[in-house]
């Protein structure tokens, strides 16, 4: 519980601040662009669907690479940390989805006021599951590279497959080379596919990190 509380108080605040800053930046960029041409897309959608997942992936890497060794150094087991990080991933995904929803709400108001046009964006569950999977994949990659060094590269194809699934519900991202119209192919089973991706990423992280040696680095 202590680890979960610590992850929540430190990282949730940090992530909320970063997301808030990203929103202000997106609005500022939109206003700047409006000086030269018509606004036709949602800047916040770019941030939420393109940059957001990478940020969540980074936080996942940070959790395993930086915080797991600190937890063990302070007398906590890997299992305790992984339980806390797994629950935290859901909390963080919920928070980031809430920020994403709030961002679209405020941006929608601004766009209406300025008579700008925005492209369509995905439904909230798609963002939630995307953030969840990318965070878990970040943990998976960090665990693989921390444990196996350069050998961690072998987890990258799996990681890629897991995150690609999350893109299918993002407008304009439903096509892959040789595989067209993935949303249609998956049908209503897309939520199950994303949930399975999350489960695979989490299971992989557990399998790798459960026995992972903590390196005694000197500064």
């Amino acid at each position: 519980m202590k680890i979960f509380r610590h992850l929540t108080t430190s990282l949730v605040t940090f992530c909320a601040l970063v997301a808030g800053g990203a929103f202000v930046f997106a609005v500022a960029v939109t206003f700047a662009v409006s000086l030269f041409r018509d606004v036709e897309i949602s800047a916040w959608n770019v941030a939420a669907s393109q940059i957001g997942p990478w940020f969540l992936l980074f936080i996942g890497v940070y959790a395993i690479h930086n915080m797991l060794p600190i937890a063990v150094a302070h007398g906590r087991t890997r299992r305790e940390f992984l339980v806390a990080a797994s629950v935290f991933s859901v909390v963080l995904a919920v928070l980031m989805t809430a920020v994403e929803w709030l961002g679209f709400l405020v941006e929608g108001g601004i766009y209406s006021l300025m008579d700008w046009r925005a492209d369509e964006h995905a439904a909230q569950p798609a963002y939630f599951l995307m953030y969840l999977v990318w965070f878990a994949v970040g943990m998976l990659c960090a665990a693989a590279f921390d444990r196996y060094g350069p050998g961690g590269v072998f987890v990258l194809p799996v990681a890629f497959a897991l995150v690609v699934v999350t893109r299918v519900q993002m407008p304009g991202a439903g096509n892959l080379p040789f595989v067209q119209d993935i949303p249609v192919l998956l049908g209503p089973g897309w939520t199950a596919a994303l949930a399975a991706s999350f489960a695979v990423a989490l299971a992989g992280t557990w399998a790798i990190a459960r026995d992972m040696p903590i390196r005694t680095r000197s500064v």
């Binding site: 150094a73 302070h74 007398g75 890997r78």
Partner: peptide, 22 residues
């Protein structure tokens, strides 16, 4: 190893690197 009760009783420090983030 991975025994919560035992690990609570242990502290290993080599400089400060693994008990803290730079």
């Amino acid at each position: 190893f991975e025994n919560a009760a035992a690990l609570r009783q242990v502290c290993l420090v080599r400089h400060s690197a693994h008990a803290a983030d730079k």
